[in-house]
Amino acid sequence: MDSVELFFTAVGACVILHCGLKVLTVLKVLFPKVWYPVPSGYFTSMGEWAVVTGASDGIGRAYAIELSKHGMNVAIISRSQEKLNKTAVEIGETTGKRVKVIVADFTKDDVYENIAQNLQDLNIGILGKLYLSVFFFSVQRGVLIQNSETSELQIGRINMVINCNVKAMMKMCTIVLPIMERRRKGIILNVSSGLAQIPCPTFSLYTASKVCVNRFSQALQAEYKQKGITIQAVAPFGVSTLLSGYQSPNMFTFTTDQFVRTSLTYVRSGDKTNGSIRHTILGWILDTIPFQLFYSSKLQDRFTEFVKLRVQHMNL
Rank of each mutant, 00 (worst) to 15 (best):
A222Q: 12
N118Y: 03
R183G: 00
F237M: 09
S217M: 08
M160P: 00
S217L: 07
S138M: 11
V134A: 10
K171I: 11
H313R: 14
V23C: 07
G128F: 00
S80G: 12
Y266Q: 05
D2S: 09
R278Y: 07
I162F: 01
R141G: 05
I76S: 07
M160T: 08
L195N: 07
V38D: 02
D301F: 06
V311W: 00
I229F: 05
S209W: 02
S78L: 07
F254Y: 14
I126D: 03
L67D: 07
G245W: 01
T95Q: 04
M169V: 09
R79E: 09
V166L: 09
S244A: 12
D57I: 09
G41N: 06
M169G: 00
N85A: 15
F291N: 12
D271C: 15
T94M: 02
P290Q: 10
S248G: 03
F136A: 14
S269H: 13
R98M: 09
N123I: 01
E181F: 06
I162D: 01
L144G: 11
D301Q: 13
I126Y: 03
N118K: 15
Y131V: 10
Q140Y: 08
V15S: 05
Q221N: 15
N163W: 02
V4N: 09
V23R: 01
I229E: 03
V211N: 03
Q146M: 04
F291G: 06
Q221S: 14
K108D: 06
N73D: 14
W35P: 00
A104K: 05
L242K: 12
G128C: 08
L127A: 03
A116Y: 01
N214G: 00
I124H: 01
M314T: 07
N274Q: 08
T9P: 00
L243Y: 06
P32F: 04
S297V: 08
Q140N: 15
Q226R: 13
L21V: 14
F306I: 11
Q247H: 02
V234C: 04
L177Q: 08
T241A: 13
V29R: 04
Y131E: 11
K129A: 07
L132A: 15
Q226V: 01
G283R: 04
V38I: 12
F237T: 10
C200A: 15
G270V: 15
N85Y: 06
T174F: 06
F135P: 01
F237G: 08
K100T: 09
F237Y: 15
K22A: 14
S138I: 10
R157M: 10
N85K: 15
N159Y: 05
V99H: 04
V311Y: 01
Q247S: 04
M46R: 14
E93R: 15
M314E: 09
F136H: 13
I188K: 01
T44E: 03
T304H: 00
